[in-house]
Nucleic acid binder design. Sequence first.
DNA 1: ACTTTATGTCAGCCTTGTTGACTTTCCAAG
DNA 2: CTTGGAAAGTCAACAAGGCTGACATAAAGT
Lengths: 166, 166
Amino acid sequence: MADIPATGGETLLFLTDEQLRKGIEAMFFAYRGFTADPDRILEEHGYGRAHHRAVHFINRQPGLTVTTLLDVLGVTKQSLNRVLRTLIEDGLVESRVGTKDRRERRLHLTDKGAALERELSEAQRGRMRAAYRAAGPQAVAGFRQVLEAMMDPQQLRHYQSMRDGG
Amino acid sequence: MADIPATGGETLLFLTDEQLRKGIEAMFFAYRGFTADPDRILEEHGYGRAHHRAVHFINRQPGLTVTTLLDVLGVTKQSLNRVLRTLIEDGLVESRVGTKDRRERRLHLTDKGAALERELSEAQRGRMRAAYRAAGPQAVAGFRQVLEAMMDPQQLRHYQSMRDGG
DNA sequence: ACTTTATGTCAGCCTTGTTGACTTTCCAAG
DNA sequence: CTTGGAAAGTCAACAAGGCTGACATAAAGT
């Protein structure tokens, strides 16, 4: 990337519109690749991306409430409920009444749900792993820095709420 | 990131599932931020993301044919046509019969279309610029390396077909 | 003349998002 | 104990934007 040393020691970027547009299109095309493998698997099972997202976050944080999941996903409860209902009906997700507050529904994956989650995330991790290996460790660090800086503060909060594996 | 030097001089990454999952969620949350600003603007104008994508690529490559645009966007002609028709009716896009091959329709933005494109891309570039500045030049290079490695070969082809501003 | 390509269009379907209205359950404060 | 409000679920209706299939037209190529 074109950059020039600044007087203070840090570097200043030449952020031309062309460079920024390149970054924008990189996001667009890469996101397509990012979802391509799970999409294929989901189609075989008769599910969509919305199901993937639900299953992913339930797996990440077993026992989370519907409200929490709504907040993370950023959709309406009606929209989520449609997805959640089919997952529960199909026996992938279990909805347990909260022990302390019995209005809450604590969401868990069943064995069947965990199996689908594994299938989906293995495919997605496979591509991510390949991209990481191809780009190298320094690139990976930069990748995550830029993505984090691109998030809305609310989203960043959800992102950071996890234990970090690296 | 955790990495260990290998015997050959290159580095081997510890690609734990946790690290990969973090990268996956970074993509998910960042993509939401990435589309948030244009989405707001589009809504004011009564358009959707599909219109944004069409306008973006027509602006990038004025005079491109419908078939080319279909290939870049990766949707069906029926789907694109619906979007393209409203853009032409609203006077944002002009469809000119090809001079050499008169079956082709060459797509161009009108002044009005270019104005919307500018409004959208300025918002999106604004966020991208802020993220780039926050992360620094080295991070930006890594960001693009990982994204490129994540694309499908076909998508990579479209991505690379452009002149690179950096 | 015939085939193929590029484009457009109609009809219908699905997923996944939305809003609005309403109910049930249940915790917690008065 | 009653009541307010939060959590959850449900029904209806709608829109955007994907998809398939079928078909029409114009123009290019063989």
